[in-house]
Design a protein around this nucleic acid. Structure first.
Lengths: 191, 191, 191, 191
DNA sequence: AATGAATGAGCTTTCATTCAT
DNA sequence: AATGAATGAAAGCTCATTCAT
């Protein structure tokens, strides 16, 4: 059953993913976790803290993986493809966490927002540097700003929570590959 | 200064776009509109009604334009390109409304959610039919599900609110063209 | 269809009878009457005024009839019996009005409450004087205070709204007779 | 001073009795009880819950007592007399509670109304069965429907709140006896 | 480590009434 | 005679957080 803080994180993740941060009462979280409010405030300073905790961990994990993939030694188009597949697959495999991340990103308290943005920027930049590497080496088209490309692609990823359903016809890997194909197709297409 | 209901819609649009539906108090809306709560409830049945009104109008407008564009007589790749540009441009030109739509779509009361989903689906299907038309005529790749393509692209569009800033280096038209180019590039690229 | 004030009184009577004064909104009344709030406030000073009007008229009518009956020249037990039947029959024949009277008597504004109480007391006293007349002439028992008898009987009458249904097995006259029989039976029974 | 929920019930009882359910604000209740609204909603789900609690307890008590009295082994007219005295005495001894019951019975939310009606019906039926027992054994008159008799008597009891004042000339027992005498007088009177 | 009673500020909504037209 | 937009005060209720135990 896990420790109390683990159960709390788990409960909060499920609820935030389903209804959005603002629509979940602390009471619901502790009920689902089978503890009381006092216990929650013993481990977490606030409801915001729970949110921070939840998507911080996914983002950190994805950043680490991205850095490994990007530092690999395949061709740039292969590394970008892998990175694209990976962010989709890890998002789907941690779908509740990802949904919380996608939905409630802007709901953080001022103090934590800074830290979060810095981490997100780091991920974004690393991804962009891959795109730029491809352009510099003449493999990718260069008539579209690299930044825009990254936003374009992450938009698609963030939208997964709005339509993808686990257990349907498409596996996480399927979606990841299709997404990566579309991205690479667009970049390699050339003018 | 416009009529009271207009001022209310305007105020609500700005606030919902900035902070999200759940973070805006009715009191803030009426303060910004310069009226009292009673006046608001004279014109709108609930806070939900305001939300519905706001993005209903954008969605209706975009649907109409999409249907016109799709029914044009150019080549399918040109029609899809125009449609893609158009949804971006109209979203950016009504950016607050669009942000409300992107952020708060799922926050509607049960009753209105159905109606809204039906309208959204209609838009989605019309867009998808363009993609399918291109595949059937051999112009677009067919190894990626058409539905997924549409979700992929709309994800990018929905994400505009998270990064695009008016008055920056890129005009609405610029972004629209880049987005459309990326979409068409991916589809035409062929396997 | 009647004049506007008549329609308003009618609508208010029905609604107050059904739901109680406090549970009816002025908006509902004017909707049912097919007019607007402005029209209502043109004819009536307040929602309280409507209430006052409604049960004032029933009470006045019943008082007049009671005085006629009491002043008749039959035996006292016959006059009391007639009076008892009459208050039941007129209450049932104006059932909505009567229900309003029974339910919402205490809901009047301070100013009107005085006037109302005076009228009610007048009715009560006239009824009591009949009881006393019967006692003085040795026809009725005298071991129960006359005031209490009157309260006892009017309690039964007021309760009609809680159980009597028009169109059922018992006609207004039936109930009136049974009620009067029970009252007279108790008084004549003797010690 | 009692526990918080006790103080809340006490305060609500007094206020509901005085002004009627709809005329009492939750704020008044908590002020009188010396707590805050949050505390009230910690113990009671709604304002309706308070009402339910208040007269549920009186009704349950009276039902229990009625069943004991009715199951006794005296003559039926004695048992009915006792039952009549008892309902008056217990109502007067818990006068605020009884007034709430008499006044606000129909103000309950739909959900609780059913349960309450069932309990009231049970009380009514038990009382009626006493009346019927007396008719069957030829002690009571049978020209008046038993149901009507019960409504007639309970009407008188419900009306107590409208006229009886504690500390006056008549004790609870006095009123109870007079009421019972009037009831029995009417029933035994014979045709 | 954990409880749960209690707070206090805030929420959306209702409503009798007024008033310019 | 009548409209209906608008007010302003109050309503019932929710909720993150605190704190004595």
């Amino acid at each position: 059953m896990g420790t109390v803080p683990e159960r709390l994180i788990e409960a909060a993740t499920r609820l935030f993913a389903d209804k959005g941060f603002d629509r979940v009462a602390v009471q619901e979280i502790v009920d689902l976790a089978g503890v009381t409010k006092g216990a929650m405030y013993h481990y977490f300073g606030s409801k915001d803290d729970l949110l921070h905790e939840i998507y911080g961990s996914l983002l950190r994990m994805q950043t680490e993986r991205l850095e490994l993939i990007a530092a690999g030694d395949g061709a740039v188009e292969e590394r970008l493809h892998s990175a694209a597949v990976d962010v989709v697959v890890t998002s789907v495999e941690n779908f509740d966490q990802a949904k919380v991340y996608f939905r409630s990103a802007d709901q953080l308290a001022e103090s934590q927002r800074m830290a979060m943005r810095a981490e997100r920027r780091r991920y974004h930049e690393r991804f962009r540097s891959l795109v730029e590497e491809g352009r510099d080496s003449g493999v990718f088209r260069s008539d579209v700003p690299a930044d825009l490309v990254v936003h374009y692609f992450f938009g698609s990823v963030h939208h997964l929570g709005a339509w993808y359903r686990e257990g349907g016809a498409l596996s996480a890997k399927d979606v990841g590959r299709h997404y990566a194909d579309l991205l690479l197709g667009a970049l390699v297409a050339g003018e």
